[in-house]
């Protein structure tokens, strides 16, 4: 009485087929990741050394290391964070905790989504107009970081807003019913419970900012600088632009050099991502509900 009918067999075959198909697509997705990393490691590995990280490029960028670019990228990312995180988190708190649900709020949300969709080259041109020329920052870290900040603000806002909204409404109601103001509620209950999500969003922003090229190439990053930036008003080298330059703009660069630069760049991004994941796991372990 428990034998398979013809229908059962057909269903089982279909089941196998679909499962295989979905599995294949997932496998396909891993291919580029493996290929990119593999090629970079094989071709760029030989270029890599401690000296490569900590010396300046020499011989018209055909030899030497990436030190000024590495430091420049850290500068750019750090200043971009200092600009975008306070603004982004504050805006997200307003949108999530204070803003009434009306047409204005919806319009602002629409703007944020659209801001996220603006191509980065357009951000670059905006950066030139606004920060380099209008605010007279010149070609500088400050101008480039402000441009990066504008570019990544939507990421920060959306990530922050989502983690704020993941805090159950019942907690807020409990606080309000005890006479707590919105700010008391935010400070003592909402923020402590969403901080892990906010930080994760911030780290993701960092890793995205690290690789951006177009927004910085007109606003603050330069091909070659023999010295390290001394303040935010100096121009700087950057890893992403350096990669572009050594791969396309300089003749006679040894083969492994661009791959080495790319490997360092991707290493920086992967380190950020790993940090973000570790952080998330750590804070999820402390999750309170």
């Amino acid at each position: 009485m428990f034998e398979a009918t013809e229908l059962n067999d057909r269903n089982r075959r279909a089941e196998r087929l679909w499962r295989w198909l979905f599995g294949m697509m997932t496998g396909l997705l891993i291919v580029p990741v493996v290929l990119i990393l593999g090629v970079l490691i094989v071709k760029g590995g030989p270029a890599l050394s401690i000296d490569f990280l900590f010396t300046e490029p020499t011989d018209g960028m055909r030899a030497g290391g990436v030190f000024p670019a590495l430091i420049g990228t850290i500068w750019l990312v750090a200043v971009a964070l200092l600009v975008s995180v306070p603004i982004g988190v504050a805006a997200a708190v307003y949108l999530s905790e204070y803003a009434p649900d009306n047409w204005l709020t919806r319009l602002i949300n629409l703007c944020i989504i659209n801001l996220a969709g603006v191509p980065s080259i357009v951000h670059a041109l905006f950066g030139v107009g606004a920060f380099v020329l209008f605010f007279k920052f010149g070609i500088s870290i400050l101008a480039a970081s402000c441009t990066l900040a504008v570019l990544t603000l939507p990421v920060v806002i959306v990530a922050t807003r989502e983690s704020l909204q993941a805090v159950p409404q019942a907690f807020r109601e409990a606080c309000w019913n005890m006479g707590a103001t919105r700010w008391q509620t935010i400070r003592r209950v909402v923020l402590p419970n969403s901080i892990s999500g906010i930080l994760t969003g911030v780290i993701l922003e960092v890793s995205r900012t690290t690789g951006e090229t177009a927004p910085i190439m007109f606003t603050g990053a330069v091909f070659l600088l023999p010295f390290l930036p001394q303040s935010v008003f100096d121009p700087t080298m950057a890893m992403s632009l350096h990669l572009f330059v050594v791969s396309t703009q300089v003749p006679g660069v040894p083969d492994e050099l661009p791959y080495g630069v790319a490997l360092v760049l991707i290493g920086m991004v992967l380190c950020m991502n790993a940090l973000s994941i570790a952080f998330r796991v750590y804070l999820r372990g402390k999750k309170k509900w």
């Binding site: 409990a174 606080c175 019913n177 005890m178 707590a180 509900w289």
Partner: peptide, 30 residues
């Protein structure tokens, strides 16, 4: 002040994601 004088208990218990002690002290701190 109205909400201080008139407390509310809900259908689903909604303790705050804090310690027992901090839950009791929440209103007093507020």
């Amino acid at each position: 002040q109205v909400r201080k004088q008139v407390g509310m208990v809900f259908q689903r218990p909604n303790p705050l994601p804090l310690s027992i002690r901090d839950n009791v002290l929440f209103g007093a701190r507020t």
